[in-house]
């Protein structure tokens, strides 16, 4: 596919902004997490676009590491959500305003 890199970067920017709006707007903690995944994915798209433009494998390798870190982040984050649900019986992030257990 031969489209200008700027178009791909704009698509990545739009997806990233949608993710930011999701983090700001939604109160369900799991959907906030999904929005963060969307933002990670937009960053990956920019990496792949630049790897294609510069013909460098390094961009693709970096995306591989980003996916590994995202997997670790999701495992720990969802475990935290489950732990919070046990104490508060809610995953509404407005309820998570106190640091006491």
């Amino acid at each position: 596919m031969n489209v200008p890199t700027a178009y791909l970067l704009m698509l990545a920017a739009v997806l990233f902004s949608i993710g930011v709006i999701g983090v700001l707007l939604r109160r369900n903690a799991i959907i906030v997490f999904m929005s963060i995944e969307l933002m990670t994915n937009a960053g990956n798209l920019a990496f792949i676009a630049f790897a294609r433009e510069l013909l460098s494998t390094a961009g693709q390798v970096f995306v591989f590491f980003t996916i590994a870190v995202a997997a670790a982040e999701v495992a720990v984050g969802l475990a935290l959500v489950v732990a919070i649900f046990r104490t508060k019986h809610s995953i509404d992030i407005d309820q998570m305003s106190s640091l006491k257990g």
Partner: peptide, 10 residues
């Protein structure tokens, strides 16, 4: 989109 950008493995 990745496939079309020659990133088959990713």
């Amino acid at each position: 989109l990745y496939l079309l950008l020659n990133a088959a493995f990713i």
